[in-house]
Design a protein around this nucleic acid. Sequence first.
DNA 1: CTGTTAGCGCATTCAG
DNA 2: CTGAATGCGCTAACAG
Lengths: 333, 333
Amino acid sequence: MATIYDVSVLAGVSLATVSRVMNKNTNVSEKTKKKVQDAMDQLGYRPSSIAQSLASNRSNSIGVLVSQLDGPFYGPMMTEIETALRDANKHVIIAAGHSNETQEKEAVEFLLDRGCDALILDVEALSDEYIINLCQQSTPIVLINRFISEIEERCIYLNNALGGYLATKHVLSQGHTQLAYIAGPQFKSDARERLEGHKQALAEFEVTFDETLFFEGNFREPSGVSAMEYLLKQDKQFTCVISANDQMASGAIAVSLERDISVPKQLSFIGYDNSPFPKYISPKLSTVSNPIQEMGKMAALWVLKNVYNKPDLSIVNTFTPQLILRDSVKSLK
Amino acid sequence: MATIYDVSVLAGVSLATVSRVMNKNTNVSEKTKKKVQDAMDQLGYRPSSIAQSLASNRSNSIGVLVSQLDGPFYGPMMTEIETALRDANKHVIIAAGHSNETQEKEAVEFLLDRGCDALILDVEALSDEYIINLCQQSTPIVLINRFISEIEERCIYLNNALGGYLATKHVLSQGHTQLAYIAGPQFKSDARERLEGHKQALAEFEVTFDETLFFEGNFREPSGVSAMEYLLKQDKQFTCVISANDQMASGAIAVSLERDISVPKQLSFIGYDNSPFPKYISPKLSTVSNPIQEMGKMAALWVLKNVYNKPDLSIVNTFTPQLILRDSVKSLK
DNA sequence: CTGTTAGCGCATTCAG
DNA sequence: CTGAATGCGCTAACAG
């Protein structure tokens, strides 16, 4: 590997000049600039990003911590982050926290030790307090999918309550009044907010929340299966199941179909997240959009703007969900 | 941030001794080791991984290049890679190649420039020749999902032909003889091999391959939709659709159900990959397992063994697919 | 068992 | 506009 030194010798200039050519090109005559570039080409010179990092105190790396790398949710988000950042010649180091406080904490420290210039965090188990404290350290932090009022401008989040409200309002307006609800894990703020939105719509339509038709899952398909089994065991009528995400809805629908409950003829379903897969199953799942990709991209832009000084980027913190109507909710009117 | 120098002063020892304590602990007396560790604790010392990299000529980073970060396929693989590598205190830098030769090439160079100690590649568009040449450079390379005989020992791959064979043999043995085939993109070797396996089974059962009931998709759901629309337009009978992956099968099933073709009563389906989602739809998709997670983990172990000198790890290069029978294939006997 | 001495490859003052 | 000098934080001989 050729070094900057080799280039300087071949070009007959000093190290500093080569360095100048590599970076801002500030104040280097065209002639010498060309000499240097020729020498670089000739040697196939590639700067050592590690040495650059050490000398400049910038790693050009961004740590991204998500709860899981698999599942339909984080992949699309990671894609956007990676694309936006690599275009800016930054690299992303990934870590998974597995929704577990200890692991999330370890992952954060791991990324910090790696000298990341910034961290993009989608964490669920870490306390607000811990995160706020983290933001006071030297490494810039941006949060996805979480709102903490003290550090509002570092949060990129979805109005989950509105989404929950929209979904429930929709089925209510279709004439459904006997509703079951499959919630996400209540230690996650998005799951709580979706439930709140649900209750708000209920209140508006003067329908009472039925505790016996409530099940708390974990956002994964198998818990949708459990949920449906539980709901069916209750001695209650219900015409519609509202699920806090699409994956649990899928699990629940599978159970229904298995037991010859036709969807949506006998039972309606609505999900949340607009995951790619349920579009291709039958019946196509009605759901609420979750612009996770845009949010991922926005987090990347936040970093570019606030860490790498691109002031011309404008940041949007709040995203708004939208109802996506397909075939899984029957009108009762 | 405290540096190694601060620690050495506080502990009253030399830089070298502190370095020894951090690393191998070789030949340091218990007393001084303790002194040093106390000093580290007191200062909250964290070594700079960047300085370590520069001095030791090791970045402790591994580049992972996949075609896409989203979709059901790569997430689980990434999870395993990340876990295995972070346990060893290495970090993974990701990049997406989007199945495009230019982008894959750029991504490889990007990772190489980052000073990665090794690259784990799941590439589709790069030529064998390019890859072989890459392997001759100084950065160790390991391939997932691809077999190139010249660099056999660097390949972690699935016996795709066997999987294709098993799927087709299964439906043939259930009495199906009028078969449609939805292939993956034929520039990808795994797609080609699956098709080969299919033809092999056909030959064995003396069933002729029907060109008009063949459709080449791109491994994504929408192309399964297109495939089914195409097949239905042909004026041919078929009782079973064999798809080169689950995603296309899902798209195809959705079309069938939409047109009131009941599955598997009127039409059977079999997929490939054992993706998580189709387990929860109805009917549950019969498929062929693809141990992508184990393969990801194995690639990580390969790196640990061959790059970071953990000789006690044993590497398995070939993985074997298995038939997973669920509810989407009807017996015609 | 421990300290001294050089760099690793580059960015960045400060002179000129 | 360009060069010389210094140091980023650490590892790795080499002595002792």
